[in-house]
């Protein structure tokens, strides 16, 4: 098992390198001169040249990449010129907030999606199935940022139950309870789409598994229906759904961009949107690389969990 995990860990190294190349290439496509963006009205030819030299932008592209990645490997992501602080410090601080939000959302959507999917399959064509199918369809068809706005209007403005924005209350907050209160709305909003996708797949997987021979064996043994469904069918269906949850991690991480903007959550998504508009290239580069790498790790984790659940792959 540990050998397998080690092998998988090693196998993501080339993927991470590939990611860094894509991120670098995309960023180098940026038209215009970053030096001018930095200098603004101080952009005299001499100053531009000096900045370009400082940033290594006068060197060929390949060399620039290796200088950048060499520094990145050592933990130096460069400095954000707009914030005037090291990119890594800013990115890690923001990423922590995003991980809290996305992590809670991922747990939420997995639990909701699995439960809804199983109920939907077990009560196929019943009213519960129809209701779930409709909610799921609506959930995957609405813009998450719009749903967020509606939830703010209802829960924060109209009923005054929950805070509308931010991660902690400005005055007197800061404890776990405060954090959880602030998490409820954004995490639920973020979870809706992914939960819908997971529910759909769980339903399909359950219906498929319920027809299989080993389920009939479980019935022939005289097991009560509840055990047939949860211990036998669900167990087998789960193995197929786990990788989908891994993929959903990517949608949740990406979707966090909108949710963080709507709820003013101090995460990496909101940071990226701002960095893009100020053309803070190194910050964008570093942020995208960190989020993409963590997505790769999420998928790896999903694979490992799947392997642990399925003895056939484990062998």
């Amino acid at each position: 098992m540990s050998a397998y995990i080690l092998k998988r860990l090693l196998s993501i190294i080339p993927v991470l390198f590939g990611l860094s190349i894509i991120v670098f290439l995309v960023m180098s496509m940026i038209p215009g001169d970053p030096a001018i963006a930095i200098l603004g009205s101080y952009a005299t030819p001499e100053n531009v040249e000096r900045i370009n030299r400082d940033l290594g932008l006068d060197k060929p592209l390949v060399q620039q990449y290796f200088i950048w990645i060499g520094n990145v490997v050592q933990g130096d992501f460069g400095r954000s010129f707009a914030l005037n602080r090291p990119v890594l410090d800013e990115v890690l601080e923001r990423f922590r907030a995003t991980l809290i939000l996305a992590g809670v959302a991922l747990v939420l959507c997995s639990v909701m999606g699995l439960i809804a999917g199983v109920i939907s399959a077990v009560r196929q064509f019943g009213w519960a199935d129809k209701a779930i199918t409709f909610v799921v369809l609506a959930g995957i068809s609405m813009p998450s940022f719009w749903l967020g706005l509606i939830l703010i209007l209802l829960f924060a403005v109209r009923w005054r139950l929950l805070p509308a924005s931010g991660m902690y209350a400005i005055y007197g907050g800061g404890d776990l309870k405060d954090l959880l209160l602030h998490l409820i709305l954004p995490a639920s909003t973020l979870a809706v789409v992914a939960a819908g996708v997971i529910a759909r797949l769980t339903r399909a997987a359950m219906l498929e598994v319920l027809r299989q021979d080993f389920v009939r064996t479980a019935r022939a043994k005289g097991l009560p229906e509840r055990q047939v469904i949860y211990r036998h069918a669900f167990r087998a269906a789960l193995v197929g759904v786990i990788p989908v949850i891994g993929i959903q991690a990517g949608f949740v991480l990406g979707g966090a961009v909108y949710i963080e903007t709507v709820f003013q959550w101090p995460g990496i998504g909101a940071m990226l949107v701002k960095a893009i508009s100020t053309r803070d290239i190194l910050l964008v580069q570093g942020g995208v690389l960190i989020v993409a790498s963590s997505h790769v790790l999420f998928n790896l984790a999903a694979d490992v969990v799947q392997t642990m659940l399925d003895p056939r792959i484990r062998a």
Binding site: V15, I276, V288, A292
Partner: peptide, 25 residues
């Protein structure tokens, strides 16, 4: 397919953001 896998390794919206960042809004 390796190239396609690499694109898929990005969280869906993030890559779009990066591309817009590069091309400009």
């Amino acid at each position: 397919m390796r190239g396609v896998d690499m694109l898929m390794a990005f969280p869906y919206i993030l890559l779009a953001l990066a591309i817009v960042a590069a091309l400009g809004p």
